[in-house]
């Protein structure tokens, strides 16, 4: 049985393995931000209410504030840092810029991760599916209309890329 105190866990984030020592109470969002210095994932409510900390675990969007780091060994984690290739933003990130899909930006990485998970699973979503994919991501600036527009434009851009 595990004792109190620190224990080793290897997190697989954006394709790289990160062996770290954590307390069992370390949430994934804290491990990402503090142990891995991947601060693109934001922590706001830490209660699964706001969606700012959304990451993709084994292909599914999840709240990293309600996952324990020790519980994530062997699971494929994708964060906002894993979407761009060098300086080239992903089509979805480009669409957020082009559509003015954010204002203060604090919810943005979570919004993008939710839509990224949707587009990976359903490359041709309906407007309703796009809106539904971000129901768990709160934007207090109220950029919702342009967030959904960004999702639509990203889906179209990805479809065009596939045709070309």
């Amino acid at each position: 049985m595990a004792a109190n105190g620190f224990q080793p866990v290897t997190l697989t984030v954006n394709g790289s393995d990160y062996p770290i020592m954590v307390e069992p109470r370390r949430t994934l969002v804290d491990a990402l931000r503090h142990d891995l210095a991947l601060t693109g994932t934001k922590k706001v409510c830490a209660m699964g209410d706001c969606g700012a900390c959304t990451v993709i675990v084994d292909g599914r969007a999840m709240y990293s504030c309600l996952l324990l780091a020790v519980d994530c060994a062997g699971r494929a984690i994708t964060t906002i840092e894993g979407l761009a290739h060098g300086n080239n933003l992903s089509p979805l990130q480009e669409a957020f810029v082009a559509s003015d899909g954010f204002q203060c930006g604090f919810c943005t990485s979570g919004q993008i991760m939710s839509l990224h998970a949707l587009l990976q699973a359903h490359p041709h979503p309906s407007d309703e599916e796009i809106a539904r994919a971000v129901t768990g991501n709160i934007c207090r600036c109220g950029a919702y209309a342009n967030i959904v527009k960004a999702g639509r434009e990203a889906a179209e851009a990805m479809a065009r890329q596939q045709e070309a």
Binding site: G48, T54, R60, A61, M62, Y63, S114, A117, G136
Partner: peptide, 9 residues
């Protein structure tokens, strides 16, 4: 129920 993220978890 809940949100996509919570339903996934």
């Amino acid at each position: 129920a809940a949100t996509p993220q919570l339903r996934n978890m």
